[in-house]
Structure formats: structure tokens, C-alpha cells
Amino acid sequence: MIYYTLNNLLGQVGAIFRWHGILLDTPEPWQLGFQDAASPVMEEVIFLHDQIMFILTIIITAVLWLIVRALTTKHYHKYLYEGTLIEIIWTLIPAAILVFIAFPSLKLLYLMDEVIDPALTIKAIGHQWYWSYEYSDYGSDTIEFDSYMIPTSDLNNGDLRLLEVDNRIIVPIQTQVRVLVTAADVLHSFAVPSLSVKMDAVPGRLNQTSFFIKRPGVFYGQCSEICGANHSFMPIVIEAVSLDKYIHWVANWSAETD
């Protein structure tokens, strides 16, 4: 009951921030928490994290209290030092806690691996040191482009250093998107925290991940596998737009390439 009350309170605080237009879709200086969730899977990740942190707070408080009492009290109950009963208690309670954590963790694990028929497939290819993307669902009108980081000297006011790219991935909201991830040279990793997406890019192998974006926005990620000297200079930017805007973008791209 206390856990769900805290979750509701956190949800209300989050709703207040969203009502004021404040969404943490980018990393912040000295950030300790997650970025705001933009997909159902990321919401579940945050819920599991909050649940485990709540349990950890209770455990740490109880253990510290027992340690302090044991160190500061001369006449302490002997069964708290040794005995069959205390051995049974501190074996069963951790086992019950692990079971309580394991079930939602397994649920989330299978949710992340669930294969859903995608409405859109994008191929992401990691290079040293940039990403290239292919939209191959449109027959002969395949959309292909490279995505390079914008140098600091070319940034405009409000742009994010080391995170902006010249060509963003454009996807529609409320749509199941599959991403096929591979690499052309060395190991890379395609990762976008707000969407709970992280998939290794292995040369000669196709890995698959997917996401479902619930709201419009611009979501930032980076290569998460050390891949060489410019590893930290190959960001990922996904822009989620309405279906009408996405269709307009595809039509414009096709017209430019004809």
C-alpha cells in the first residue's frame, strides 16, 4: 500500500512537470534519476527501479538500526546474536524479498523481448564514427542517409553539445517501430535512454530491438560501446512526430531523390 501511494505521489509530481512543459528527454548536469519515459517499456523500467529502491531503503534502515543498537547497547537480547530462530528469520526474509523482486523483473525482461509485428522497420548501421540509417519499407523508394554529429562551432542557440546531428531519425508516434542494428567495422551500441533502447551493433550480424513512442518529442542517445577514438562523438537523435508529419517527411524525401 505504501509503495503504491509513493508511486501515485511521484506520478502526480511528474504530471505537474509535464503540465508546465518540463520533460527530461535529455541528460542533465548532475542528473541522478532517469530521463522521462517516452515508451511503455521505459515506464515499466522506472516502476521497477522505484520498487527496488523502496525495498532497499527499508533494508538499509533496518540493518543500520540493528548495527547501531548492537554497538551501543551493552545488554542486548542474546537471540539477536545467535540462535536457530534468528538464523531462520534472516534466511527466509531475504529469500522472500528476492522473490518479490524477481517476479516484476522477469515480467519486464519478457516484455522487452516480446516480438510485435512492426509497422515500420529501420536499419541502423554503426560506423567509425557515425550512424547510417535505411528505411526499406517503401519498395524502390528506400530512404538512406548518414547521421553525423554537428561540431560545437556549428551549433545554434539552444542546441545540445555532442548530441545534435545533421540528419535525425524521424518516426511516427503511437507506432510500433523495429530497428535492425548492425555495424560496418567494429562493435557499436545503439542506445536511447528515454525509450529504454540499447542494442549492440555487431559486424556481420543483425540484432533487433523495437520501441513504441507515446508522445511527440526529440530523444537523444549515444553509442554505448567503446569503438575507438571518436566513440563519444556519434550521437543518436530520434524525432517523434505525428503520422501526418511523418507521411509529409517521407513524401518530401522521395521527391528530393527523384
Rank of each mutant, 00 (worst) to 15 (best):
V99T: 10
W30A: 12
P29W: 06
L23Y: 05
R18W: 00
L98C: 14
K74M: 05
T26I: 07
W19A: 06
I67D: 02
D36F: 05
P40H: 13
I67V: 05
D36G: 08
D113T: 02
I86E: 04
I89C: 04
I46D: 02
Q35D: 04
E82D: 05
M112P: 04
G83I: 02
G14D: 01
I101F: 04
F103S: 15
I86L: 07
D117K: 12
F103V: 12
I22Q: 15
D36V: 01
Q51R: 15
I16E: 00
V41Q: 08
L10W: 06
A62I: 02
L48Q: 09
V41E: 11
Y110I: 00
Q31D: 06
P118D: 03
E114H: 09
E28A: 07
W19N: 15
L48H: 13
P118E: 00
T73R: 11
P104L: 01
E44F: 00
A15H: 15
K74H: 05
L71D: 05
V99I: 12
F103T: 10
I52N: 10
R69T: 04
V68K: 13
L10F: 01
L23R: 09
I93A: 14
T57L: 15
W19L: 11
M112T: 02
I58W: 12
K78R: 15
A119F: 02
M53I: 06
V68M: 15
A119K: 06
L111G: 10
K78G: 08
E44S: 10
P94N: 00
L106Q: 08
E114N: 09
L24D: 06
P29L: 04
D25M: 08
L85V: 07
L56G: 04
I60C: 07
S39Y: 07
V99C: 11
Q51S: 09
H75D: 15
I59W: 03
T57I: 02
L108I: 01
A62W: 04
E82G: 02
T73N: 01
I89E: 03
Q31K: 00
V99A: 09
I46W: 05
F100H: 12
L80R: 06
E43M: 14
P94K: 03
V115N: 03
L98P: 06
P29N: 08
H20R: 14
W65T: 11
F103D: 12
I16G: 01
H77L: 09
